[in-house]
Simulated assay, not measured.
Amino acid sequence: MNVPYLDQLQGKVDHCQHLLADFDTLAFLPAQPSNEAGFRNKAKMVISGTTAQPTIGILDAEGHGVDLRNCGVIDPALRAMFPVIERFIRELKLIPYDVPKRKGELKHVILTLSDTGAIMVRWVLRTKKHFVALRSSLPQFVEQLPPGSVVSVNFLPEHKAVLEGEEEIILTRRTTLQFELNGIPMHLRPQGFFQTNTQIAAALYRQAAQWINDVNPESVWDLYSGVGGFALHSAAPGRAVYGIETSSEAVEAAKTSAASLGLEDAHFMAQDATEFALNAGWAPDAVIVNPPRRGISAELSQWLNDSDVEHIIYSSCNAQSLARDLKRLSNYTPQLARVMDMFPQTNHYEVIVKLQRSAA
Score class of each variant (00 low, 15 high):
G238C: 07
L92E: 12
L223R: 00
R102E: 14
E275L: 15
R79V: 05
A208I: 15
V142G: 01
A201H: 02
C317L: 09
P157N: 09
S257V: 06
R293S: 01
L204E: 01
V66E: 06
L177D: 00
S219V: 04
T256G: 02
I74Y: 03
H159P: 03
A280Q: 15
I184C: 08
V153E: 00
P146Y: 04
S247D: 06
R174H: 12
I110G: 01
E86G: 14
I95P: 01
R126Y: 04
Y314H: 07
D22L: 07
G57H: 09
P100W: 07
D222F: 04
R90H: 11
P30S: 07
H267E: 07
Q302L: 07
Q302S: 11
Q320V: 15
V84K: 15
F141Q: 15
F88M: 14
S219L: 06
Q144D: 10
K160D: 07
P292V: 03
I312T: 09
T256Y: 02
Q10G: 08
D115K: 03
W303K: 05
T346F: 03
T112M: 07
S297L: 10
P291I: 01
A323I: 05
D308C: 12
E252V: 02
K160T: 07
F343P: 02
S307A: 10
G238D: 05
A201S: 13
L106I: 14
D285H: 08
N290S: 13
S114Y: 05
A360Q: 15
S330V: 07
R135T: 14
M269I: 14
Q199A: 12
I74D: 05
L59Q: 12
S48Q: 10
L26T: 10
R338A: 03
A277H: 01
R40T: 11
A253L: 04
E158D: 11
S137K: 15
G281F: 10
S248H: 08
Q144A: 08
L26M: 12
Y224C: 00
A286F: 02
S114K: 05
L134P: 00
L156C: 06
S316C: 10
F268P: 00
D24I: 02
S315H: 02
E350C: 03
Q8G: 00
D75K: 04
R69Y: 03
R40H: 05
L326V: 12
D341L: 00
R102M: 12
E166S: 10
L78F: 09
T246A: 13
K101N: 13
G104M: 08
P100F: 06
M81L: 13
I56H: 03
G65L: 08
R357V: 06
L261A: 04
G104R: 05
L125Q: 11
V227Q: 00
A254H: 11
P146F: 05
V162K: 03
Y242W: 15
A31Y: 12
A253P: 02
S234G: 13
A203L: 12
R293G: 02
T346N: 10
C317E: 06
A231N: 06
D325F: 00
P96F: 08
G228D: 12
L68K: 12
V351L: 11
S297M: 11
F268I: 09
V132A: 15
